[in-house]
Simulated scan of single mutants.
Amino acid sequence: MRSLIIFALALAPLASGVSAQDADVGRALYHTHCATCHGLEGRGDGPMSGVLTVKPVNLTELAAANGGVFPLERVVMRIDGRDPLVSHGSPMPVYGDYFARSFDVPIKAPSGQPVMTSQPVVDLIAYLREIQKSD
C-alpha cells in the first residue's frame, strides 16, 4: 500500500499539468545561454546587445507588458523554437537544440492547460518568473 501511495504522489505533478521547477537551475541556464544578449539581470543590456540589429527585450518586464500576467505560452514557445524570432536569425535559442530536445514535460499555463516543453525550459521559466518587476 505504501508503494502505491508513493507512486501516486510521484505522478501527481503530471496529472495536474505542473512539473517540478528549479529557479536556481534556470538561473544557471540563463547565465549560460541568455545573458550575453539579455544581460545578467535580464534588462536587455548584455554585452552583445549593442551589435544586434534588434535590441533584446527586457525580460524583467514580460508580465508588465502583458497586463500583469506572465505570458507563459509565448515565452515557452520562443525559447524552445516553436515561435521563432527573425531578430535571432534562426529559431531561438541560437545555441542549437538544447532547449528543444524534447517536449515531454508539462507546465501549467494561466488557462490551466498544460504546455508541453523540456525540463530546461521549465527551469528557465521559473527563473524568468522570479525576475519579473512588480509595481
Results as ranks from 00 to 15, higher is better:
68 G>W: 00
83 D>K: 07
92 M>A: 12
121 V>M: 01
47 P>Y: 13
50 G>S: 09
67 G>M: 10
125 I>C: 03
69 V>Q: 15
134 S>M: 10
60 T>G: 05
61 E>N: 11
44 G>W: 06
38 H>L: 07
90 S>N: 12
4 L>G: 06
26 G>Y: 09
115 V>A: 00
75 V>Q: 13
84 P>Y: 08
74 R>Y: 03
54 V>C: 02
22 D>S: 15
1 M>E: 15
74 R>K: 11
4 L>D: 15
15 A>H: 02
43 R>M: 09
75 V>S: 11
81 G>E: 11
15 A>I: 14
29 L>D: 14
16 S>G: 10
3 S>G: 01
84 P>V: 10
41 E>Q: 13
68 G>R: 01
120 P>M: 14
32 T>S: 12
35 A>H: 03
28 A>R: 11
35 A>N: 04
83 D>H: 09
91 P>R: 08
73 E>P: 00
76 V>T: 01
56 P>G: 00
31 H>T: 06
69 V>A: 12
105 V>W: 05
72 L>G: 04
56 P>H: 01
40 L>C: 00
72 L>T: 08
50 G>E: 05
18 V>S: 11
49 S>M: 07
108 K>R: 14
37 C>A: 13
69 V>N: 14
45 D>V: 11
118 S>F: 03
46 G>H: 10
100 A>K: 07
87 S>N: 10
55 K>N: 07
50 G>D: 04
103 F>K: 11
48 M>L: 11
23 A>R: 05
121 V>F: 01
91 P>E: 06
122 V>D: 05
76 V>L: 00
3 S>K: 11
124 L>K: 07
84 P>G: 01
101 R>N: 07
122 V>H: 03
47 P>N: 08
126 A>E: 04
23 A>T: 10
102 S>Q: 12
109 A>S: 14
29 L>H: 09
49 S>N: 09
130 E>K: 13
15 A>D: 00
115 V>H: 01
124 L>Y: 07
75 V>N: 12
107 I>P: 15
49 S>C: 10
71 P>Y: 05
114 P>D: 02
106 P>G: 10
33 H>E: 02
79 I>F: 02
102 S>P: 02
21 Q>I: 09
74 R>M: 09
108 K>C: 03
103 F>N: 11
59 L>I: 10
60 T>P: 04
69 V>P: 04
35 A>G: 06
37 C>F: 06
97 D>F: 04
124 L>A: 05
1 M>A: 15
84 P>K: 03
